[in-house]
Amino acid sequence: MPLTRQEVEHIAELAKLALSQEEIERFQEQLSAILDYAAVLQRLDTEAIPPTAQVIELRNVMRADEVSPSLPVEDVLGNAPSRRDSFFCVPPVIEVAP
């Protein structure tokens, strides 16, 4: 079942990806083909099969709660596209009163 254009635009919105018109059309076609191919999984009866999220038996790995040095703030901020003092800068996320 091919994906509609609206579905592709909706996924792009969820994935926070700005796509060109050409990309939307190409992905509509390619994702439909891949999902068609993945439909073979529906042939298997997995009603009684538990899912595998990860393969090792470890759970709740704990470590001692000890203070150890963190990365220097300057090193961490060193890659920031935009910064002020010890903060990352982002465009406004709330509306500013006029």
């Binding site: 579905e7 996924i11 969820l14 994935a15 990806l17 700005a18 796509l19 990309e23 465009p91």
Partner: peptide, 27 residues
């Protein structure tokens, strides 16, 4: 605007296969 920063950054910064798989995985 923040959403616009995210979308445009990712639209410009990722190549075709990364976008394809991000779309597939999100779906």
């Amino acid at each position: 605007e923040l959403w616009e920063l995210y979308k445009r950054t990712r639209g410009e910064g990722f190549g075709a296969e990364v976008k394809r798989r991000t779309m597939l995985g999100t779906y």
